Amino acid sequence: MLLSKLFLLPAAVASSVTVYMHSVPSTSSPPTAVVPSPIPLVQISYDVEQTSGTVVSYTPPQGSYAPDHLMRIGLHDIQEGIWKGILTSAASFADEYTKKFVVHLDEKGEPYHVGFSTSDRGAGEELNIEVVRKAAGPKPVLNKPVVLNADGRIDSKEPEKTFLQK
C-alpha cells in the first residue's frame, strides 16, 4: 500500500535547454559576421519546480571581438528560423563580469524566452542561472450584484459638495 502511494507522488522533472549565440553582421566595411551560424553558448539543466538551474556546459565566445560588436543570445528554433532572446555587446562576456541567464518557462514548463544580464564579478561565480515560471496576471472582478432600494433605484448618496463646488 505504501509502495503504491510512493509511485503516485509527483516526481520532479529535470529538463535542459541550450542557449545559442550568434554574431550580428557589422554595418562597417566589410559587413561580415564573426560567427557565421548560431553556436551553443551554454547548456542549462533545470527543474520545473525550482527557481534555479545548473550549468551543464559553457563555452564563452572565442575570437577577437570589438567591445561594441553585437551578439544575439537566446533560443534558436531551427525549423522556423526564429530567435527568442536578447541582443548584447561582446563586452558583456569580459572576465570582470558575472553573467546571469534567466530562463522563462510557460505553463507547460517549456522555455519560451531567455534573458541575459551582467554585473560586477566580485567573489561570486562566473555564471548564475535563474528559472522564472509564467504567472497568471490579475483578473477583473465581474458580475457584482447591483443593490436597489425599495423604490427600485440604485441607492446612492451624492457626496457632499465643498463651498467652492456649490
Rank of each mutant, 00 (worst) to 15 (best):
F7C: 12
T59S: 04
Q165T: 03
Y58V: 00
S52Q: 13
N128W: 09
G152Q: 06
T59V: 10
D106C: 07
S23N: 09
I129Q: 03
L127C: 08
L164N: 11
L127E: 10
I129L: 07
D151I: 03
T32D: 14
L3G: 10
R133G: 15
V102P: 01
V102H: 04
S23C: 07
A123W: 06
L127R: 04
Y20H: 02
W83F: 12
D106P: 01
D155W: 14
L105Q: 03
E49C: 08
Y58L: 00
L87I: 11
E107N: 10
S45F: 13
G115L: 00
K139L: 15
E80P: 00
L105R: 00
P36F: 12
A150R: 15
K157G: 13
H22V: 05
P40T: 07
V114L: 02
G85Q: 02
V17G: 01
E107C: 04
S119K: 12
G85F: 05
M21D: 01
F163G: 03
V13M: 12
P159H: 08
H113C: 04
A11G: 13
P145Y: 09
S26Q: 01
F93E: 02
K84C: 01
S156V: 15
P138M: 14
S117I: 01
D95G: 10
K100D: 05
T18P: 00
E125A: 10
R72S: 13
K84Y: 07
V34F: 14
S57F: 04
L87N: 11
L70Q: 11
T162V: 08
D77H: 04
L8A: 11
Q43T: 12
E96A: 10
P10H: 08
K134Y: 15
A66G: 09
V24L: 13
T54N: 05
Q50C: 12
L70P: 05
D120F: 10
A136V: 13
L75T: 00
N128C: 09
S64M: 05
T54L: 02
S45T: 05
I44V: 09
K108F: 14
R153Y: 13
I129K: 01
S16N: 09
S29C: 02
V141G: 12
E130G: 02
E96W: 12
H104A: 04
V132Q: 08
T118D: 07
V147F: 13
H104Q: 02
V132E: 06
S37N: 15
T118Y: 04
F93G: 09
V19F: 07
F101M: 04
V103H: 09
G109M: 12
P145Q: 08
V114F: 03
V141F: 13
D77T: 00
V34C: 09
E160D: 07
L6D: 11
T54M: 03
A90D: 04
S16Q: 07
K139W: 14
K144M: 00
I82E: 01
F116G: 00
I73N: 02
S92I: 03
H104V: 01
S28D: 08
A136F: 15
S92P: 06
T54W: 10
V141W: 14
S23K: 00
L142A: 09
H69F: 15
N128Y: 11
L148N: 05
S156M: 15
D151R: 15
K157R: 09
E125W: 03
H22I: 03
P61K: 06
G124Y: 02
T51D: 15
P140D: 06
A135G: 11
P61F: 05
N149L: 10
A66R: 12
P140C: 11
A14D: 11
V141D: 10
